[in-house]
């Protein structure tokens, strides 16, 4: 029969071999038993939990940031680029129109941004916004194309010998700013203005060029009425008059998209006889 010490040692040996003390360390009576050492697992588990928590916190923010960057590359910027690289850039009239379009776009974008902040934009919303912008851009493109095709006026000036000294198609931009009505017969000018008015009505461009047409018409009207008075006085049979050189001008309704790079002053090429 075993004595007490042998019996106790046997029991402790059995415990040490098969069970771990609850505190995870040595029980004070020998080496700790086998099994899983929690002290080694806990730090790894803590790191894993920390990584998961950080991922839960930061991944949505990163995704939000990425989606925000995509929003930044909205058509607003691309529209600006498109307009500035268009051939109409040199045309003050088009520049004005373009500026208006850009302003509209920016306003829309700000509104969208505000909406987005209020309702935490979703992917669907973003798609919808982009569709709206695309539609707006399509409308703008159509209008730009229409403005591009406003009828031009072909001005031909000949010298005394009938030789053509000036022959050029003048764009609406050039025509709208001209003050040299003397080179253009009144009837031809009125016919040209009428064709431009009709074109503006047909293409819904009154808001863009209506004011310019009215301004030009008024200036021309003033000029021609003044010129006709002078002409009447000059037809006095008692005075010697000099015959004005004949100028051959032609009105042409052009839908040609070609842009004239030269924007020379009409007056510069006008020849007057003494």
């Amino acid at each position: 029969m075993e004595n007490n010490n042998d019996f106790l040692n046997s029991v402790h040996s059995e415990i040490d071999d098969n069970y771990i003390p609850d505190n995870g360390g040595n029980n004070g009576r020998g080496p700790s038993g086998g099994g899983v050492d929690l002290s080694k697992i806990l730090p790894i588990a803590a790191i894993l939990i920390a990584v998961v928590v950080l991922a839960i916190i930061f991944v949505p923010k990163i995704l939000e940031k990425i989606s925000g960057k995509e929003e930044d590359t909205t058509p607003t910027e691309s529209v600006t680029e498109t307009y500035t690289t268009e051939e109409y850039t040199t045309d003050p009239l088009w520049n004005e129109t373009t500026t208006e379009e850009i302003t509209t776009e920016e306003t829309t974008t700000e509104a969208e941004t505000t909406k987005k902040q209020h309702r935490e934009s979703t992917t669907t919303t973003t798609k919808k916004d982009k569709t709206t912008k695309t539609t707006t851009k399509v409308d703008s493109d159509a209008k730009v194309k229409a403005l591009q095709n406003i009828p031009k006026y072909r001005l031909v000036i000949k010298d005394d010998n009938g030789k053509t000294i000036y022959d050029k198609e003048l764009t609406w931009s050039e025509m709208s700013k001209t003050t040299k009505f003397g080179d253009i017969p009144e009837s031809e000018f009125n016919a040209y203005i009428a064709s431009v008015k009709k074109y503006a009505n047909d293409n819904d461009l009154n808001s863009e060029i209506g004011a310019s047409i009215d301004k030009l018409s008024k200036a021309a009207s003033d000029y021609y009425s003044k010129n006709s008075t002078t002409a009447k006085s000059s037809t006095d049979p008692t005075t010697t008059t000099t015959k004005e050189p004949e100028t051959s001008t032609t009105v042409k309704d052009s839908t040609n998209t070609t842009t004239d790079a030269d924007s020379g002053e009409v007056a510069a090429t006008t020849k007057k006889t003494a």
Binding site: M1, E2, F7, V11, E14, I15, Y19, D22
Partner: peptide
């Protein structure tokens, strides 16, 4: 058998240790 009884007694004390809480 006393040796077998001793072994069973050891098992009982180990079980007591395991379930002490």
């Amino acid at each position: 058998s006393v040796p077998l009884a001793e072994n069973i007694a050891k098992e009982a004390f180990v079980e007591l240790y395991r379930n002490r809480n």
